[in-house]
């Protein structure tokens, strides 16, 4: 929410996010120069993340919350490009839906666009190296991306509002406890949904995933055999 994060923290998180965004923009420029066809496809992915993050997930407690949707993009396009997509999505959430804000955007870009996706991307690549089951791997990546986003958010809030007794750590624990109640079930649901989404994509348009180097043709053949 706009205005919630006091100075100097909102400036601090903007500064922390800037190098990642610069790196993302640099990669974006390189991708677009090399493969002209990448831009419309990246745009599709960005719009997809926006629509996904404005969907409401079914949750156990009956309350509704928003998935981050960035785990999917991180698996498809890598961590840094996802930061740029997350920035654009956050601008649209602020200006089209009045979710979030401009001063708080730096902190949100860092938690939702940098920390979560980078961890998801590293985990996915590592899982691929050790030949983890593709769906389990995608579930873990999406689950951790969502969860880690909220761990970082709690940390950001705790830094800005340390508790009177116990300071940073006890305030971090308090924010974590609040988010854990609502977000752990949601992160599991998001993980399952992203994994099942991949299943549908593999069923209908596996060529997209091979082209983006998300899956190799070998893995794909193996998955097809297992399904048959």
């Amino acid at each position: 929410m706009e205005g919630f994060l006091p100075s100097p923290w909102w400036q601090f998180w903007w500064l922390v996010s800037l190098p990642f965004l610069a790196l993302g923009l640099y990669q974006l420029r390189k991708i677009v120069r090399e493969r002209r066809e990448a831009l419309p496809l990246l745009a599709v992915a960005g719009a997809f993340v926006f629509v996904l993050s404005s969907l409401k997930l079914p949750s156990v407690t009956g309350s509704c919350s928003h998935p981050t949707g960035t785990g999917l993009s991180a698996v498809l396009f890598g961590g840094f490009v996802t930061s740029v997509l997350a920035l654009i999505v956050l601008i649209y959430q602020a200006l089209l839906l009045a979710h979030g804000g401009i001063t708080t955007m730096g902190a949100n870009v860092f938690s939702m666009g940098v920390a979560g996706p980078l961890v998801a991307w590293i985990l996915y690549r590592a899982g691929k190296q050790v030949n983890l089951n593709t769906f389990v791997n995608i579930f873990i990546a999406a689950f951790i991306a969502d969860l880690f986003t909220y761990v970082v958010t709690s940390f950001q809030l705790a830094l800005a509002f340390p508790a009177a007794e116990g300071g940073l750590l006890s305030s971090f624990a308090a924010f974590m406890a609040i988010f854990a109640l609502t977000q752990v079930p949601l992160a599991i649901v998001e993980g399952v949904i992203v994994a099942l989404t991949f299943k549908y994509i593999i069923d209908v348009r596996p060529d997209i995933l091979v082209k983006l180097d998300v899956l190799t043709q070998n893995t794909l053949n193996r998955l097809k055999e297992a399904a048959a």
Binding site: L41, V44, A47, F48, V51, L52, L55, L57, P58, V189, V192, I193, V194, A195, L196, T197, F198, K199, Y200, I201, V204, R205, I208
Partner: peptide, 18 residues
């Protein structure tokens, strides 16, 4: 059913979007 339906929605939305 909701989880299944929502994943189907995301999957087919992505494919159509692509």
């Amino acid at each position: 059913k909701s989880v299944d339906a929502l994943s189907m929605l995301c999957g087919s939305l992505f494919i159509r979007a692509w």
